[in-house]
């Protein structure tokens, strides 16, 4: 192979001045970032402008004030928060022992749990709710003479639809399990629990006094993700006809466009705050405080 060096000479004029650092990459990077900034910021800014633009006065925050007085706001928000808390409790109760078990004694269960926690991601929620609504519709016909009948009626109580909690737990499982599993991986749960067992602690004691205190940030992150999911969930609640917060936004949009956009901006802010809390909790965990 011929040597290439001597033949190649750069024209003097095109040599970059000092340092000879290539300029081109910075240009495309700038273009990409500017386009992205426009695409992602304009809707946010425009939404805000939309909500404060009053027909005659020019600027008004009325739309935000109206959120709180609008009919159904308090009830639906409280319902969504209540559902969120119930879902968090249930999902933690179910996944924490399972995640600890997989780490400690039954690694062969891991693939099973992986599949179980991937299914809700592969199966679209709307197909899930199609199944649920069919069960709820058919159930009473077949189970009329059994105690299950009462159960089926009870889970659909519009004041607190337990059926939504059950469905949301399934949707939240993948996120909760992954974040708990990651948290357990970070604290070396085996050594910790063996040390505690060695000192004579019982298993429930190990779980409550040793593992959970060390898992606070992983549990917090699982809880935040679950809460964000429940507060934003629309499909299942709408198809089962329960008025959760997102459904309320949808219902009032027909009559009060500004208010519904204001609520959208508002709910985005809530998500922001939740995720900021989440990432700062993560940062605290990393810094070991």
């Amino acid at each position: 192979m011929a040597s290439l060096t001597p033949q190649v000479t750069t024209p003097a004029g095109s040599a970059p001045a000092r340092g000879g650092r290539p300029r081109r990459p910075r240009v495309w990077r700038g273009v990409v970032l500017v386009i992205a900034a426009v695409y992602f910021l304009v809707p946010l800014i425009a939404s805000f402008v939309f909500t404060v633009k009053a027909p005659n006065q020019g600027f008004s925050l009325d739309a935000y004030g109206k959120i709180f007085s609008a009919e159904g706001f308090g009830g639906s928000l409280l319902l969504s928060l209540g559902l969120g808390i119930a879902t968090i409790v249930l999902v933690l109760l179910l996944t924490l022992p399972a995640a600890v078990a997989v780490r400690l004694g039954a690694p062969r269960l891991r693939p099973v749990l992986e599949v179980v926690c991937t299914l809700p991601l592969v199966v679209p929620p709307i197909t899930f709710v199609a199944g649920i609504s069919t069960v709820l519709r058919w159930g009473p016909d077949y189970l009329a003479s059994t105690p299950f009948y009462q159960t089926i009626i009870a889970v659909q109580n519009p004041d607190f639809p337990v059926v939504l909690v059950l469905a949301y737990v399934v949707l939240a499982l993948p996120f909760a399990y992954r974040s708990l599993d990651a948290g357990l991986g970070a604290i070396d749960v085996r050594t910790l629990s063996e040390a505690a067992r060695n000192l004579g602690a019982s298993w429930p004691h190990v779980l409550l006094r040793v593992i959970i205190p060390n898992m606070r940030s992983a549990m917090a992150s699982a809880s935040f993700l679950t809460l964000a999911l429940v507060l934003g969930e629309f499909t299942i609640a709408r198809l089962l006809s329960f008025e959760t917060f997102p459904n309320w936004i949808y219902r009032i949009s027909g009559s009060q466009a500004q208010v519904s956009v204001a609520v959208s901006v508002f709910s985005l802010l809530i998500t922001w705050l939740l995720l900021l809390a989440l990432s700062s909790a993560g940062a605290r965990q990393r810094s070991g405080v």
Binding site: P43, A46, I249, S253, A257, V263
Partner: peptide, 13 residues
């Protein structure tokens, strides 16, 4: 940021 709020943000834009 999906669901209904996203739709409204774009409708407003």
């Amino acid at each position: 940021f999906g669901g209904v709020p996203l739709a409204f943000a774009w409708i407003a834009t």
